[in-house]
Design a protein around this nucleic acid. Structure first.
Lengths: 139, 139
DNA sequence: GTCGCTGCAAAATATTTGCAACCCG
DNA sequence: CGGGTTGCAAATATTTTGCAGCGAC
């Protein structure tokens, strides 16, 4: 069993994530942390994000865009992904605990939890699409 | 608007996927199709999987292991991912249509659908873990 | 013949890892 | 000091793309 040691890099990564409600990627974390610690390396960011995630202090969000996103909110919750702009948002909907039970009843393995991703168009993008339609109509 | 042309490579990829209930990755598809068409290239496999997915003839499953998986079953359904072995299985549970409606009520964007991933230990791995525990107990 | 599709290779992306130096406890 | 952590660079891994030639219609 390994004992963790303090590292200001790791602390600042955790603090940075806590300030963000969007769900930054490793690279976004890197770019931002560099303003505070210009010498931090991308490898360190990846190592710490991965470590923090395995400790359960943050969580990894795989939303299907080929890049991992990270979330400081470790409470179980659902996510929304915009198909237009790719933004990732928390979905203000309480997780259905029943789902795990329902799944357990019908499945011959052990269910430990679930995650749900909603897909659609975020508010900003919905407005943009509407504007485009309006313009077209006005012509 | 582009007109599709027949390609035996694309057909064989579709056929191969249809024979599999697990959810192969692009590379697995590549390795298998090569037995039929030894000259097929990985690029062609990626291009066709991506094309078929955008046509809705197959679907992409992002399960968080850093690799895309593909599924010939285009009916909406949920998936299970084993944390031990990484296998991806269909979850025998009807999708909750209510979820989209509930989400729409609380969310200021447009919801078009959702997907749910269950995490846990598959039957095979549960058995393995049990055997290990049994052995330890016997000592 | 036109244009979509392919194989090949190179490029682009994303993430991991080996290693010597460094720093926390 | 001992060993976890870091920066850097090189290595992996995954997916995309440019291009010339081939094949469907």
């Amino acid at each position: 069993m390994k004992t963790l040691k303090y590292s200001r890099q790791r602390e600042s990564i955790k603090e940075f994530l806590a300030t963000r409600k969007d769900h930054p990627t490793a690279d976004t974390v890197y770019v931002n942390i560099r303003q505070l610690y210009p010498n931090i390396s991308l490898g360190t960011v990846y190592r710490n994000l991965s470590l923090l995630a395995s400790l359960g202090e943050i969580c990894k969000v795989s939303c299907g865009d080929g890049v991992e996103h990270f979330d400081s909110n470790t409470e179980p919750h659902y996510h929304f992904i915009c198909r237009e702009c790719g933004c990732v948002q928390d979905m203000p909907l309480d997780p259905l605990n029943d789902l795990d039970r329902m799944a357990s009843d019908r499945f011959e393995g052990t269910i430990e939890g679930h995650t749900t991703l909603f897909f659609g168009t975020c508010r900003n993008c919905t407005e943009k699409v509407q504007k485009t339609l309006d313009k077209r109509e006005a012509m």
